[in-house]
């Protein structure tokens, strides 16, 4: 990316950097800067969506078709308008008709495909052919093929048994149920690991963005005074970290829960 950009773009980028820092200021505590950033996100998102919805859907899918004389589109228009009767206590019952039609269509479309993708095909995927001869590969467990299949079969059956509540979880049945809950825990662990990675990714992205802003700032100054831009950047980071550390030391003995 060319570090030198138009002044307008650079100002927007600087504003985005300010909003990033304002959002992170919530980690210190709730404050007006954070509120500004939060309200801007909600307001801008809602405004953007309204425009996208009108030009992307209402205009092309309804208004233009009606102008073209395709009167069949009056039906969805009427159904859509009827939805608004929910705001009248007297006429709210009318909105049930368009809702019923929408739910009917959505359910009809979804149920067979839900069954297919989430039940039938998952059962088929479990019914794998085990090749006992391939359980080991070069003296090691063949975890990419046969051993993985064995794990899937044992894990799935054990997890299903854990959710079988008509028999007390004792004896061999309880043992299998314990294997089931361990399988579930492994699944939750994988989800937790991915979630941690996702959250850290957001932080990394903001650090990358702030660094890009710093590089762009240096570029915008055409190298003149580039050192001062970097110094400002370092000062901001040290200032934020220092403020948080100072407050943590100052409020020693009080948890953040006590403070709020």
């Amino acid at each position: 990316m060319n570090p030198v950009m138009e002044l307008g773009d650079y100002l927007w980028m600087t504003f985005a950097a300010f909003l990033t820092l304002a959002t992170f200021s919530f980690l210190y505590k709730d404050n007006p800067l954070y509120k500004i950033a939060e309200h801007l996100v909600v307001g801008v998102s809602a405004g953007y969506f309204v425009i996208i919805l009108y030009y992307g859907s209402l205009k092309t899918q309804l208004v233009e078709k009606l102008y073209d004389g395709q009167m069949v589109y009056l039906i969805p228009l009427i159904l859509g308008v009827l939805m608004w009767t929910r705001f009248s206590k007297k006429l709210a019952w009318v909105s049930r008709y368009p809702i019923a039609i929408y739910i009917g269509i959505a359910t009809g479309l979804a149920i067979p495909l839900e069954m297919q993708t989430k039940v039938t095909e998952q059962l088929q995927a479990m019914m794998v052919e085990l090749h006992w001869g391939n359980l080991f590969d070069g003296g090691l467990l063949n975890y990419t093929n046969s051993f993985a299949s064995l794990i899937i079969i044992i894990g799935s059956l054990a997890a299903l048994i854990y959710f079988y509540f008509s028999k007390e979880h004792k004896g061999w049945f309880g043992g299998v149920a314990t294997v089931g809950i361990w399988t579930l825990m492994l699944g939750f662990g994988a989800s937790f690991g991915f979630t941690v990675m996702a959250r850290i990714s957001l932080l990394i992205n903001r650090v990358q963005f702030l660094d890009q802003w710093r590089i762009t700032s240096v570029g915008s100054a055409h190298q003149e005074g580039s050192g001062s831009y970097t110094a400002v950047y370092i000062l901001i980071l040290v200032g934020i970290f220092g403020l948080l550390a100072f407050d943590l030391i100052r409020t020693k003995g009080k948890t953040d829960t006590d403070l709020t």
Binding site: L203, L244, T251
Partner: peptide, 11 residues
């Protein structure tokens, strides 16, 4: 431990 220590160290 104040959870903000976790935030600070991670940052």
């Amino acid at each position: 431990l104040d959870r903000r220590w976790v935030f600070l160290v991670l940052a």
